[in-house]
Nucleic acid binder design. Sequence first.
DNA 1: TATTGTTATACTCTATAACTATA
DNA 2: TATAGTTATAGAGTATAACAATA
Lengths: 174, 174
Amino acid sequence: MSARPPHQPHLGDLIGAERDIVARLAEVDLDVDYDALAVVSNIFRVAAMARRRIEQVALAPERLSWTAFTTLWVLWIWGEMESRHLAAEANVTKGTLTGVLDTLEGRGLITRRRRTSDRRLVMVALTDEGAEVIARVFPNVNATEVEVAGHLSSRQRRAMAGGLRAMVRGLAES
Amino acid sequence: MSARPPHQPHLGDLIGAERDIVARLAEVDLDVDYDALAVVSNIFRVAAMARRRIEQVALAPERLSWTAFTTLWVLWIWGEMESRHLAAEANVTKGTLTGVLDTLEGRGLITRRRRTSDRRLVMVALTDEGAEVIARVFPNVNATEVEVAGHLSSRQRRAMAGGLRAMVRGLAES
DNA sequence: TATTGTTATACTCTATAACTATA
DNA sequence: TATAGTTATAGAGTATAACAATA
């Protein structure tokens, strides 16, 4: 039982929140996997906090949306790429990608060209200015990532990275 | 150097992707914290995959959006609550919450009532039907969480949960 | 017939800010 | 003056489906 009065939820008191959840779910007599709940719900918490911070600190000053940044990043790392692969990498539908590419093309950051061998395909590449933008933005993104992961010991960081990779691999298969 | 030909990115080959990133960032001669990059970017990956799966498996059949589910969940755990606290818990702005509550109220899942002591405040609570819905939906959400976290050993799960809590606490303070 | 990219529709969520009613 | 909730606006993302061009 929590000593905290009702109508005043935890608001950042994570351990207290988790205790409340256990107590409440015991009341309603449901069979719950609390370890899985803790892992997944805290991944959502960290992801939301980190994304918000990156958007405010690194992306908003450059007027880049999250997806626009991801798109530039993928093109920066892997170079010119078919549109369908770019959509898969950036984790957006092809419809969404069309809109994002329209915006980035209008701002002169990417180019599109039809493939001659298969004229259904569109190749997307960074322009010089697009490369300049992502090279300027990424260090600020990484600095925010350092801030986020900096609350871990280096041992914790390694364990986290390993566990996350295992989850990504497992989810990609199933 | 990767043996993978250009124009065929990794698409699920996580280790290969991370190797490509290291190689490419060395080329452009930027000082990068790869540990922080790996932790944060893989948190985003797992969060996106898990959220998509939960939405498809558990929420879509009940016609609940992610935020609507979160709202019902918070009310289920902590009971009747001031609207401003509910917004903070559900991680949405008060404007967004107004819209979500309109929808849920229209479907008879929650109620709103003005506080008489301070008539600026609105108290939000589950209806009986709202409690039935969340009690029916949550086990399916938790089952998906088990699927997501099930790719970890129990030792990894504990390490993950601990690390994530440390990050949440650290981010909440700074 | 199947695939790629584009277009269209409808919905959800976001940030921001103005507005009201209350305190 | 400050606060809580509502309303309004514009933008970004989603799913779904229809469509034209191409294979």
